[in-house]
Each structure stands twice: as C-alpha cells, then as structure tokens.
Amino acid sequence: MMTNPNGIVTQGQFSFLPPLTDEQITKQLKYALSKGWATSVEYTDDPHPRNTYWEMFGPPMFDLKDPAGILMEINNCRKTFPNHYIRVMAFSSVRGVESPTMSYIVNRPKNEPGFGLVRQEADGRNIRYTIHSYATDKPEGERY
C-alpha cells in the first residue's frame, strides 16, 4: 500500500501493529466477552476497503463465558483458509448501539501485493481516481 510502511492491508483495530499473538487475541476476546458482545469470525480474499461484508465462518457465538471456544474457531478458520484475511468481530446488541464494536484482523496472506491507483478520464478532462487490488485480478479462491 502506498502510505503504509509495512506494505500490508490496514483495516480495523491493531492493524498497524505486528500481528497479534494468540495470547493477545485471547485478551481481546476476554474484553469483548466481559462486555457481553457476541463474537464472530469472518474471512475474505478481497482486501478492498469498501468490501465490508466478509464471509461468515460459522454463526456468531452468543452467551460464551470463556475465550477458548472462540480461539478454537479462529484456529479452525486459519486451518481452512491459511491464505485468506480472517477477522474477528464483536457485536454489541445494546439498544441504541446495535452495531459492531470491535473488528481486527487475525490472519492475512503471506504475500500481499497491495493496490494500484487507477485513473479514469471523465468528461471535461476530469480525472477520477480509484484503487484496485492486484490480488483481485485472479478469480476468487486463487488470489493468494
């Protein structure tokens, strides 16, 4: 990525930090559980920042008491999709909030080719800019 020194996709929390270890993830999960948030694991291989709806890896987990169950699910997902982006989301069902409260990436492809800047000539010599992930040139499932 253009302005990112590590050349990795930065989305959600902690993404400028080195990858979280399992202990660190466990602590984050514990925090979410202490707040009563439902946690879910999602994956994708399309890193475009506007791609908000990732695939769900199993249904969201409600009423858990201990992070071990979620960590087990994260590891299952890593085993199934070792070269995909995997994120953990926490959802708050409190009235008035009712939206995701945490989102962080726990797995990413080994090699992230990044984004190219695409310029489009529009009417009256205007230029429209957008970004395009090099990875998405290939079909889904073969990108990384």
Partner: peptide
C-alpha cells in the same frame, strides 16, 4: 455438529 459445538463452546471454561 454445529449444535454440539455451540454447546461445547458455551461450556468452555466451566
């Protein structure tokens, strides 16, 4: 399988 796993996850830590 999902049903059993859900219960197991709920029971973890206990």
């Amino acid at each position: 399988a999902p049903k059993t796993k859900e219960v197991v996850k709920k029971a973890m830590g206990g």
